[in-house]
Amino acid sequence: MDYQTLLTTACQQLTFKPSRGQLDALNVYLELFIKWNNAYNLSAIRDPNEMVVKHLLDSLSVAHLIDGERFIDVGTGGGLPGIPLAICFPHRHFTLLDSAGKKTRFLFQVKQTLKLDNVQVENCRVESYQPEKLYDGVISRAFASLRDMTDYCQHLIHEDGKFWAMKGVFPDHELSEMEKHYKVFASYPLQVPGLEEQRCLVVLHKENNQ
């Protein structure tokens, strides 16, 4: 099965089902990703079918769960999960932040090609980024730990904002190392079509606005 067919078929198994136009945009994004990956090393994964499952479907597995209007995808790399989510939610704003210039150059190309007016690309370190307007949520697949995510990103969200952490197995050990004023708001097991490995989404918030 070619990767375009795989994407179309597998998306029918997701809770959030992209439209035909959104599927077309996801395919264009994947084609650009494959092309640029050879020179820019966006991902260690080279097989297009594996990219569909571990990049696109993995990103879209949280689409039905996130709420809010303004998100920042920190350590976005090649735009995951930010680009797939921006394609599927054109009326929500997504800032994609990464410190690697070659990756943000790729993201600018994606933004221009797909005319993603709801995407903003920032090439800097997260601790130095000062947004003009605070976000409803920080979302990431890439942070090493929940403690790092909250420590480095707490200045990016407003007092009711949340951290949306995409993880493998439920991170009990990471939660035990966090500052006590951060609490688990919700957690969800994620179903990624074609992937047998465990995935979950952990949503954190700061208690009592301390």
Rank of each mutant, 00 (worst) to 15 (best):
D2F: 07
T8I: 10
T9R: 00
Q13A: 14
F16C: 15
R20V: 10
L23I: 13
A25I: 06
N27C: 11
E31A: 15
K35Q: 15
N37F: 08
N37S: 13
Y40T: 10
L42M: 15
S43E: 13
A44C: 11
I45L: 10
N49F: 01
E50F: 01
E50C: 03
E50Q: 08
L56D: 03
S61F: 04
I66N: 04
I66R: 02
D67Y: 02
G68M: 04
G68S: 01
E69Q: 13
F71C: 12
F71K: 07
G75A: 06
G77V: 07
P81C: 14
I83H: 00
A86Y: 00
A86Q: 02
A86C: 06
F89K: 11
H91D: 13
L97C: 12
S99T: 05
A100V: 15
K102W: 09
K103Q: 08
T104H: 03
T104A: 06
L114I: 05
N118H: 00
N118M: 00
Q120D: 14
N123K: 09
C124G: 05
R125Q: 03
S128R: 14
L134P: 13
D136Y: 09
G137I: 06
V138M: 09
I139L: 13
I139P: 04
R141G: 12
R141V: 08
F143Y: 14
A144W: 00
L146M: 14
L146I: 13
D148Y: 01
M149K: 11
M149S: 13
M149Y: 07
T150F: 06
H155Y: 11
H155I: 08
L156Q: 09
I157S: 14
I157K: 09
H158Q: 12
E159T: 14
F163Q: 11
W164P: 07
F170R: 02
D172N: 09
H173S: 07
S176P: 00
M178E: 11
E179Y: 03
Y182N: 08
K183H: 09
K183Q: 15
V184F: 09
V192W: 00
V192P: 05
G194C: 11
R199G: 07
R199I: 03
R199K: 02
V202Y: 08
V202M: 12
V202P: 11
V203L: 05
K206R: 15
N208L: 15
N209G: 15
Q210V: 09
